[in-house]
Nucleic acid binder design. Sequence first.
DNA 1: TAGACGTAGA
DNA 2: TCTACGTCTA
Lengths: 169, 169
Amino acid sequence: KYVNTGKQIIGHVPGIEVGDEFQYFVELNIVGLHCQSQGGIDYVKQGEKIIATSIIAAGGYENDLDSSDVLRYMGQGRNVMQKGKRPEDQKLERGNLALANSKAVRNLVTVIRGETRSLSTLWESRGKTYAYDGLYLVEEVKQEPGPHGKLVRIPGKPELAWKVVKKSK
Amino acid sequence: KYVNTGKQIIGHVPGIEVGDEFQYFVELNIVGLHCQSQGGIDYVKQGEKIIATSIIAAGGYENDLDSSDVLRYMGQGRNVMQKGKRPEDQKLERGNLALANSKAVRNLVTVIRGETRSLSTLWESRGKTYAYDGLYLVEEVKQEPGPHGKLVRIPGKPELAWKVVKKSK
DNA sequence: TAGACGTAGA
DNA sequence: TCTACGTCTA
């Protein structure tokens, strides 16, 4: 861990609100939203099983982000977006396994959206901006290639302004 | 750049003293000692040429660190330490070119030493501790595989305690 | 687009 | 040891 946060947080992270933005993956590590250095799915061990705590949808995989309240998220493993590699069925291990377990347990999963940052004086290089998108439940998990997991926002929470913009274009 | 520091610093970095330690590569970026996210050789453009500003010797390559005042540094490119890859002559480009130019220009080069951190309660994972080792001059640059560049500490400066320890074992 | 002395986790 | 929706520079 970049900072010795102790443990990952399940569910709501104190002080973080929907729409809060971060400029680096490592910032997500620091505030406790996501404790992987690169992996898009974070998880913790709960008893014998691992359950997903947080997901980052930031491109590199084909996700469906059209809806404001539904996220289709492709699991870890070879996929159609990775050049020079043939897509394959997602294996039920690590992040994918955690997602499947979270579907059964119905625990809250933090969703973070990443978008390529536009260049400016302040941000001379590519890189992404990450925004906290709220808490979701895993509703569906498949193992075929292609959109893989389906997460649904828990009701009664504000949605991320970003998505509304995306929808309207 | 992780923080918009503006420019890399050539020579002494204000506020940094020999022996100062850092736990992450990114810290070196932030304080301005080294502005690459992974690359071991940092450099700037000076007129038409690029010159080296900073070097991190942190393993992965076969460097000679026995002496306190001399650093033999293997340039970038395939080397004997990288598995599954045959060593090849170092190409005179990027970092290696910068090093060669710095030999001609005789500009000061920051040297940082990295060592694998031992695990503890605070540092549960591998990773390295980096220590500022002072200012060096590039004295020699070769292109064969094997130790490649030779840097010599500028006189009249304290040396890094680390090295003394290493020598005595 | 690819290369680079990165990091954490299993 | 390898994987991972990283990140910077050229």
